[in-house]
Write a protein that binds this DNA or RNA. Sequence first.
DNA 1: CGAGCTATATATAAACA
DNA 2: TTGTTTATATATAGCTC
Lengths: 228, 228
Amino acid sequence: MTRKKVDLTYVISDTKRKATSKKRKNGLLKKVDEISTLCGIEACAIVYAPNDSQPDTWPPSDWGVQRVLARFRRTPELEQGKRMMNQESFLRQRIIKAQEQLNKQRNDNRKREVIHLMLHYLSGGKMFDDASMLDMNDLSWLIDQNLKEIDRMLNRTQEVNPNDGGEQQKQEAAHVDHVQQEITNVDVMQKEHHWPLMGFFNGAVGDEMLPFGDVGVKNGIWPSPHAL
Amino acid sequence: MTRKKVDLTYVISDTKRKATSKKRKNGLLKKVDEISTLCGIEACAIVYAPNDSQPDTWPPSDWGVQRVLARFRRTPELEQGKRMMNQESFLRQRIIKAQEQLNKQRNDNRKREVIHLMLHYLSGGKMFDDASMLDMNDLSWLIDQNLKEIDRMLNRTQEVNPNDGGEQQKQEAAHVDHVQQEITNVDVMQKEHHWPLMGFFNGAVGDEMLPFGDVGVKNGIWPSPHAL
DNA sequence: CGAGCTATATATAAACA
DNA sequence: TTGTTTATATATAGCTC
């Protein structure tokens, strides 16, 4: 059912556009109602829905709208230049904000990459020789491989008679469980935006435990895995 | 940090009202921008924020607003009565919707009560003699009691030497585990709004399994537990 | 005050009835 | 087409700095 992230462009599909305009129109008018009520301020919205000769508005009554419009028209033109400028900067601010969020997102992704790496290391895997493996797709692949390996081993354990299996195999299975646990933990961490290993990278633990040499977190910016 | 559920009344606190008006004003203008972009329709909003001589608007430019206003003024007065009516009914619809949600909520609560009851029954507890126990507070209390009992029994099991405990006690502990499992399941079901036992109440299972006599689900409306 | 953060409340895209 | 349901995306209240 996965709702898309809504790219802010004209909706091509006639059906969808109509549906979304209806929903959003209601939501919008409700918002105007709320801000008026909560903050006791004058506000007004006019929306021309498709196929309607008349617009929907807030306030709902015509005289209510007229009152706000009258006030607006009364506004000294002198100050309108200022307002216009403010609105333009408003747009710029939104762009800047979006860029900031993008950077944050990138940083989060780096965290995930590094933590995946570290878990692999902790769970007994060997370090990568080739740094080019370290982009997200390759890491996905890596996780998939781990999961497949786990499946394979668990199935093998089931096939054999539990009573004659050697100790070696049991240990193997236990290790697999451990890996699976670690992977589960990663998922939880990603969901909760909670990074229990943060302290580790910040030097809370002795250097002998750092698998990545002296690359650390500077000013809250995580190093690109390619730098490791 | 618990954000309150925002009661839609004038915010008394001067500080809070100012803060909320600022945030919501931005949100509102953003929404207008979005609906215009997504649906390609004309829309306009005018918000008078406190302490500002000029209102904030969408579209941001003065001529943009004027264009919408001109169109609005041009509207034949004949049809405005209809629009006004529609808007009034809009309000009524919101009230009706709220009431529907309230009813739904009540029905959900009944489901929970009944399922709690049933789990208690299935897990070996005795049925209640007194129907007055069956409101939510009492049921909360009931669950608490069950949990305490579970704790007590688990602790008792640990205290004793596992090697000399009789089979009876082990069964008891197993039963407790079962109860705990059931309770966990209830929590999961509540969270996911998923009711695997629904079919049970709808007669999917033979009558001999129904602990509550012939009281069933009619038209999707669950009986009040007091009727059981 | 203004900016930023986090936990919740709301809005709403899709899928379905 | 309108209404419901469900999973996500967004908006924001209350804090903190």
